[in-house]
């Protein structure tokens, strides 16, 4: 099957579809629930509060340093659940595949999806495969939806933010956005920027079970750290003050952004979390985050303040103040 390409008939629902599902998806994502091949997954949950999220992935290119669209699709939904304080349990997987995609590529992605799911301790319990004509989509689009159980006592919400709370970011920002941009545009940075794409439910679990009073969390994906902070300020009605010198940015990402006229604070992340933590617990929470492989570069970058209601203000390295707004439009590279 490995030399073949995806044909429209692979999505027609007949024998070819069944073969594809069994030989690729059951092989790499297999679990008893999926293997029942029912019209819907039957799952038992013993929780009174569920978090439920969905996300679609259209990354170009589908492989980039640090990950691929499959890994991204699992991490994206797992992290959306994790920042709500949920323990991710089950995912669904919807694939829209362009006719002509090598089956080998699909298998590579299925393997990546399977491995990421194992690492994140989630099961993929339902799926769907559609094939569209060549040119109707770009190689492959993936949707994942997921549910997770939320402990009843946990209340994660911007409403709980209060002046004095500390803001922690779990690692250097902008790596994913720059890695994908460089891979897509063939920008030969050496070494190439590597995406931070990672499932962070373990990391979050470590912080929460460590006892830190976490008020709110956000995964700063599209729009970057600046947009995530601006949303938190707006939703809490409080001000946020961050210090430029404390915001971690890898030197290579900083240099690449400078060359292209882009701002790392607005570049996407796929393996970072912004934590808003009670001030007295901030040090402990930071140490807990830094224990995780994806949180080694975590830093306290600022605090929630009573002034500047609804706004984010950054103290620059020069000691001046700069407001950080939500991303207005796609970041576009400048001319010179």
């Amino acid at each position: 099957m490995n030399d073949e390409k995806i044909l429209l008939s692979h999505g027609a629902g007949g024998l070819k579809t069944q073969r594809l599902i069994r030989e690729i998806f059951h092989k790499h994502l297999g679990n008893p629930c999926l293997q029942q091949e029912l019209d819907a997954a039957l799952i038992e949950v013993s929780t009174h509060k569920l978090a439920f999220s969905t996300d679609s992935f259209v990354a170009k290119p589908i492989f980039f340093p640090g990950g691929d669209i499959g890994k991204l699709a699992v991490c994206g939904t797992v992290n959306d659940l994790a920042v709500m304080g949920a323990k991710p349990l089950y995912l669904t997987l919807g694939l829209i595949i362009e006719e002509g995609l090598p089956i080998k590529t699909l298998e590579h992605l299925a393997y990546s999806i399977g491995q990421t799911a194992i690492k994140a301790k989630v099961q993929i319990v339902a799926g769907d495969t559609k094939v569209v004509e060549h040119g109707a989509c770009d190689k492959i689009y993936i949707n994942t939806s997921g549910v997770g159980s939320v402990p009843p006592e946990l209340d994660i919400s911007p409403r709980r933010m209060a002046p004095g709370d500390k803001i922690i970011v779990s690692g250097p920002v902008g790596n994913h956005g720059m890695a994908v941009l460089a891979a897509r545009e063939g920008l030969n940075f050496s070494p190439p920027p590597v995406s931070d794409c990672a499932c962070l439910n373990d990391l979050v679990d470590g912080v929460i079970s460590g006892g830190a009073s976490v008020k709110c969390m956000r995964d700063p994906t599209r729009g970057g750290l600046a947009t995530a902070l601006a949303e938190l300020a707006e939703q809490s009605g409080l001000g946020i003050r961050v210090f430029e010198k404390d915001v971690p940015v890898d030197p290579a990402v900083k240099a690449a952004c400078f060359m292209l006229g882009l701002d790392p604070l607005y570049m996407a992340n796929e393996g970072r979390i912004v934590f808003i933590v009670e001030s007295t617990d901030a040090r402990d929470a930071l140490q807990e985050i830094q224990k995780h492989y994806a949180g080694r570069g975590a830093c306290i970058i600022g605090e929630v303040v009573g002034e500047h209601a609804g706004k984010v203000v950054m103290e620059t390295e020069l000691g001046t103040l700069r407001f950080l707004h939500m991303l207005e439009a796609d970041p576009l590279p400048r001319i010179c």
């Binding site: 006229g261 620059t316 390295e317 020069l318 000691g319 103040l321 700069r322």
Partner: peptide
Amino acid sequence: CGTHTRAIAKSGIKQL
């Protein structure tokens, strides 16, 4: 130079 314009605005030099 546009890059100067942007750097001046971003760093808040005028405030100093």
